[in-house]
């Protein structure tokens, strides 16, 4: 019961904040909503027994990436927001259309899953063999044994992205 309450609360907040992120007029507001959104998602992760991912979510996403967004917003320092002259009706119309599409999709998915049979049984936390050791340790094992090569490739990807970002953001090469 408390679990369900927690989930619904979190889901409502996440979705509401997501709507706020998308619809906020100011980019700075949008970023702030995004931080809160990420933190709530991290809480959701904790409820799903994924403590390490939740910590990563907080550190990397909410801490690193969002700060990066904030810097960029400050750097760009818009005199006038692009949406200032946009047609409000256009936004509403687009949102309506997309809402319709979403509705259609949900209908399709639900109907198809009802047709395929009952939903997967049992709750998440009460089933399966519980993790014997801590989540972080297990994840470390898996990450550094089975997924070693993808892990190293990811590190290379980050390096390349870093170099690329520096090259792009630099005013001009040689200046």
């Amino acid at each position: 019961m408390a679990e369900a309450l927690l989930f619904y609360t979190l889901a409502a907040l996440i979705l509401g904040l997501g709507v706020m992120v998308v619809s906020a007029r100011s980019a700075v507001h949008s970023v702030l909503f995004l931080v809160v959104n990420f933190l709530l998602v991290a809480v959701l992760y904790v409820t799903l027994n994924a403590e390490f991912v939740a910590v990563i979510q907080v550190l990397v996403y909410a801490g690193g990436i969002v700060v990066l967004y904030l810097f960029v917003v400050m750097l760009v320092n818009l005199k006038q927001a692009p949406e200032r002259f946009s047609d409000p009706r256009r936004l509403a119309r687009s949102g309506l259309v997309l809402g319709g599409v979403v509705l259609a999709l949900i209908v399709v998915v639900v109907s198809s899953s009802l047709r395929a049979g009952a939903a997967p049984e049992g709750t998440l936390s009460g089933f399966g063999t519980p993790f014997t050791s801590g989540n972080t340790e297990q994840l470390g094992w898996v990450l550094y044994t089975s997924y070693l090569i993808p892990f190293e490739l990811a590190s290379m990807l980050l390096l390349v992205a870093m170099v690329g970002a520096i090259v792009l953001a630099k005013r001009h090469l040689g200046e």
Binding site: I65, Y69, A154, V160, A161, G164, I166, V167, L168, A169
Partner: peptide, 14 residues
């Protein structure tokens, strides 16, 4: 998350 970080870095650079 790693890819998102890379994407954010490059995209914001652009």
């Amino acid at each position: 998350i790693a890819v998102a970080a890379a994407e954010a870095a490059v995209g914001l650079g652009i």
